[in-house]
Amino acid sequence: MTEEKRANAAPLGLSGFALTTLVLSLYNAGIITSGAGTVIGLAAFYGGLAQLLASILEWRAGNTFGLVAFFTYGAFWEWYFISSLGIIPITSIGVGITLIAFGIFTLAMWFGTLKTNIGLFTTFLLLWITFFLLGAGAMTSNTTLTHAGGYVGILTAIAAWYTGLATVVAESLGTKPPVGRAIIK
């Protein structure tokens, strides 16, 4: 009996994360100022649902890091979706604390990327900086910090998208993805 080849779910999770992060970050940076409701649908389905699905597939593949990362960030986007609906009242302090808590989580996960590749290392490095800037901006109502978080978020999205899509293209060409070597061997 031969083992069936399974698809790599990480590019799906990274792409869902990257696209949703990019669109929200364009608003956070102040580059786009109208139509922010666009992010709500992305948060529910591509940022949220796609990452939750990717996390389950990573679990089946035995990848604990992928499971924890994709499930957590999928849940983050579902939180964003529910919070954006205005059903449950939230404060800027509450949002700021939540973003900083996600920043702490992401900082811890960043250490887990040291033995993966530079693509993931860069994505998680930029993401924890993004969360801290956005959290501080929300807590202090400082638009400069929020805009800075938006710009770093755009870089985060680019790094995540590159890492995910480089893997897809490399697999389709039968080559190794150009995402850089591990920081620590």
Rank of each mutant, 00 (worst) to 15 (best):
L53A: 13
Q51E: 11
Y73F: 15
V95F: 12
W79V: 10
G47R: 03
Y80Q: 11
R60P: 03
S25F: 04
G41H: 02
N63F: 01
I87D: 08
L99S: 08
S34A: 13
P89Q: 12
W77Y: 09
G35H: 08
S55I: 07
A50W: 05
W59N: 15
L85Y: 04
T91D: 07
G96R: 03
L85T: 11
P89M: 08
S84N: 10
I97F: 11
F71A: 15
S83L: 12
P89D: 11
I100R: 05
L42K: 02
I87L: 14
T91I: 06
L52C: 11
G62V: 08
I88F: 11
I90T: 15
A50C: 11
A75F: 10
V95S: 11
G86S: 04
I40Y: 06
L99R: 04
I88G: 06
E78T: 10
A43Q: 01
I100H: 04
A44Q: 01
S84V: 05
S34I: 13
P89L: 08
F71C: 15
G47M: 00
A61L: 12
T33M: 09
S83F: 10
Y46I: 08
F76Y: 09
L26S: 04
I88K: 07
W79R: 13
I100E: 01
R60A: 14
S34V: 14
A44S: 08
T64N: 15
G30N: 04
A44C: 11
S34L: 13
G41Q: 03
G48P: 05
T33L: 09
A69K: 01
G66W: 00
S55R: 06
G62R: 09
Y46F: 14
A43H: 02
I93C: 10
G41V: 06
I87S: 09
A69E: 06
G35F: 10
G47Q: 02
A43I: 08
I56T: 14
A44P: 03
N28E: 07
S92G: 13
G35Q: 06
A75R: 04
A36I: 11
T91P: 05
G48S: 05
F65H: 07
I32S: 15
G47P: 02
V68N: 07
I40F: 10
L26M: 13
A44Y: 00
N63C: 05
A61M: 10
I31Q: 11
L85F: 03
L24G: 04
G47F: 00
L42W: 00
N28Y: 08
A44T: 11
T64R: 14
G47Y: 02
G37Y: 05
F65Q: 05
F71N: 14
F81W: 12
A36Q: 14
G41E: 03
A54D: 00
